[in-house]
């Protein structure tokens, strides 16, 4: 891994994997510094202005997953800039509400788990 990228392990559960090609676990490599508005830069886009950079956080990861890996029904994954209500997010096996939710700054080799709780009783 180079110092300007982060490698993360992302796991989906509770039926959420169906939106991501039915693949439960995937390794994701993202830039360590990302645009301030969490937009996902396309490969052909011009270089980002240094003033608009921030450290990659969970909000960026969610946008990145939606843009690069989601294959079906984005409305079931995200609502505005966060996950849809009913999706539990664990960061290194800890509730993301304890870690600052979307503002948590990602570190290399972090494990992010996204579990849908909406699949019935």
């Amino acid at each position: 891994m180079s110092s300007d990228t982060l490698t993360l392990k992302v796991e989906f559960g509770g039926g959420l994997e169906l939106l991501f090609s039915n693949k439960r676990i995937r390794d994701v490599t993202i830039p360590a510094f990302v645009p301030g508005d969490s937009s996902v830069p396309s490969p052909e886009s011009e270089s980002i202005q240094p003033t608009s950079l921030k450290q990659a956080d969970v909000t960026f990861l969610l946008h990145y997953l939606r843009e690069k890996h989601l294959t079906d029904r984005p409305e079931l994954f995200m609502e505005k800039d966060t996950v849809r209500p009913g999706i539990l997010v664990l960061i290194n096996d800890t509730d993301w509400e304890l870690e600052g939710e979307g503002d948590y700054v990602l570190k290399d080799k972090d494990e992010i788990v996204l579990i849908s709780t909406l699949h019935g009783g």
Binding site: G13, G15, L18, G86, L88, I115, T117, H119
Partner: peptide, 24 residues
């Protein structure tokens, strides 16, 4: 019996106790 357990608790319990959830 789960009437006092929220969906979030159910999801975390299933995750931490390796319970298979097929999904409805």
């Amino acid at each position: 019996p789960l009437r006092d357990v929220t969906m979030k608790e159910c999801a975390a319990y299933a995750r931490w106790n390796n319970i298979t959830v097929v999904g409805k």
